[in-house]
Design a protein around this nucleic acid. Structure first.
Lengths: 238, 238
DNA sequence: CGGACTATTGAGACTCCTCAACTAACGTGG
DNA sequence: CCACGTTAGTTGAGGAGTCTCAATAGTCCG
C-alpha cells in the first residue's frame, strides 16, 4: 500500500475545527495500521464495485482513478450522487447494506478494507478516526454543493457549476495558476444523471458554450475554460 | 444537560458497520464528558444561530426544536440545505468559517460546544467520536436523499418526497402504525427554498393534493396523509 | 471491420417561473 | 383589547426552458 493511496486530500475537520487545520496527510503509523487490513485491487473501467442494497462488508479507498456513486430510481432512471477521486473513501451504508451502487469511470486502483476490522482500528486509533471524520465532513459539504447545483433551473447554470466542481475536485494536485485542460473522464450521460437533466440538454448546452467561445473540448474527455469570467457569471446567475 | 439532549437519534455508523448496529444512545460517561463543555441555550423561534462565513468557534446540538440550515446565492435567493431535528448536530465549517447560516424554525433548546475543546475530547474518547462519525454519515445520507428529491422535475414529486421525509425525520419517536397529524413547523417559503421551486408552485401543488383528497391541512403547520398509496405513487414516478 | 453504444440536432408538448393582484395571518404598539 | 402594518400565502396569465420522441452521425471495443 503506497503513500498516495492513503494520503487523503486536504480536508480539515472544519465542522469542529475553528482555527487549527489538521495535518493533511496520514502519519506513517496510520498508513501501516491501515495497510495491515487493506487489500489492493486493480479494477478496469466501467466495472461495478458493489451494488446498492447488497451486504456492506467492506469500505473502499481510491488510490487512483475515478468512481461514480449512483442510485436507481423506481422509474428505472439513474441519479449519480457523486463522483469520487483519488483519496476519497466510499462505501456508504444503512442497516448494513450499501445505499448506492458504485462503478469505476476510469481504470482504478482501490483498497478494500473489512468494516469490522476498520471499526475496531478506529476505536483504537482516535487520530485515524479523526481523519475519517474529516473525510465525511468533506463529503457532506460536497453533497450540499451538489444539491445547490442540481436545484439550478437552467442547464447552463448546472453545467457551469459542474465544470467548476471538476476544476476543484479533480485537479487539486496541479498548480491552479497555469491554464490547462481539465480531465472530464465521465460520459455525457453520466453528467446528465449527475445534474438531473437529459443527455440532450447536456449536449445542447455544451454546444452553446463552445459556440460562445466560453469553453473548448479538444476531445470528449477534456475541457479547457477559455473565458473564466463568463463561466463564473453563468454559475452565479441563480 | 439532560439525557434527551445527547440521545442522538438512531444512526448506526453504517458506512463502516456491516452487521453490528452501534448502541443508539450515548453512554452516561459520554453525557458527562460533553456536559462539562456544553452551554445550554434557550432560543426563540426565527432567531439566527450563526451566519455563513463567520468564524466557527462552536458546534451545536439540538435538545428540542427545529432549525434550518441555508445558504444565500449570488442572486440573492436562498437555498435551504437541510432541516435539523432534536438530536442533530450542526455547525458545518470550512477553513474555520461556517458554510451555511442557521436559524431556528421553532423555539429551540440548544447546546453550544467550543470546537477546540470538543476536538480534544473526541481524540481522548474514541467511542464518543464514533458517535459523531455516525451523525455525519447520517447527515450525508440525508443530503443525498435531498439531492435526489430536488432533482425531480415536477413540483408534485418533490412535495411528495418532502412529506415522506417529514414523516421519517420529524416523528421518529412516535408509533408509525397509528395515523396522525405530521408536524410541519416550517413556512411555505421555507419548503420552496428547500425544494428549489417558487412559493407559488408549493401553494398550487398543495392545493391540488388537497383537492384530490391525498392530504389534508387542518392548519398550516400540520398535515395528515389521507391516501398514502397515491402519495407513494407520486413520490415514485421519477 | 462490424455492432453497440454514445453524442448530437430538430420539433412539439408540458411544467414551472415571473409578474401581479388579492386575501389571510401574525405581531406590534397604542 | 383592538387597529393597523407587515409578512405569508393563494390564485391567475403569459413567457421561458426543458423533456420526450425521433433520426442521424460519431466513437469505442471486441
Amino acid at each position: 500500500m503506497n503513500a498516495r493511496a492513503l494520503s487523503m486530500r486536504a480536508i480539515p475537520f472544519d465542522t469542529v475545527t475553528a482555527a487549527g487545520v489538521a495535518t493533511q496527510l496520514l502519519t506513517e503509523r496510520h498508513r501501516q495500521n491501515l495497510a495491515g487490513l487493506a487489500t489492493s485491487m486493480a479494477v478496469p473501467r466501467r466495472t461495478m464495485v458493489y451494488r446498492e442494497d447488497t451486504l456492506a462488508r467492506w469500505i473502499f479507498m481510491i488510490a487512483d482513478g475515478v468512481v461514480k456513486s449512483y442510485r436507481h430510481l423506481p422509474s428505472g432512471k439513474r441519479r449519480i450522487v457523486g463522483f469520487l477521486f483519488p483519496g476519497d473513501v466510499f462505501g456508504l451504508a444503512e442497516s448494513g447494506h450499501f445505499v448506492n451502487s458504485t462503478q469505476t469511470v476510469t481504470p482504478a486502483a482501490l483498497y478494500r478494507i473489512p468494516v469490522d476490522a476498520l471499526k475496531d482500528l478506529l476505536r483504537r486509533d482516535p487520530d485515524l478516526q479523526f481523519r475519517f471524520l474529516c473525510k465525511m465532513t468533506h463529503q457532506l459539504r460536497e453533497a450540499q454543493r451538489h444539491t445547490i447545483c442540481v436545484s439550478r433551473h437552467t442547464a447552463a447554470g448546472k453545467l457551469a457549476l459542474f465544470l467548476k466542481m471538476l476544476e476543484r475536485d479533480g485537479q487539486s494536485d496541479l498548480d491552479p495558476s497555469v491554464p490547462r485542460y481539465i480531465a472530464m473522464p465521465m460520459t455525457r450521460i453520466d453528467i446528465a444523471d449527475y445534474l438531473g437533466i437529459s443527455p440532450e440538454a447536456v449536449s445542447r448546452c455544451t454546444s452553446r458554450l463552445v459556440r460562445r467561445g466560453i469553453v473548448a473540448f479538444p476531445d470528449r474527455h477534456r475541457v479547457r475554460i477559455l473565458n473564466p469570467t463568463e463561466l463564473e457569471r453563468l454559475a452565479a446567475v441563480v
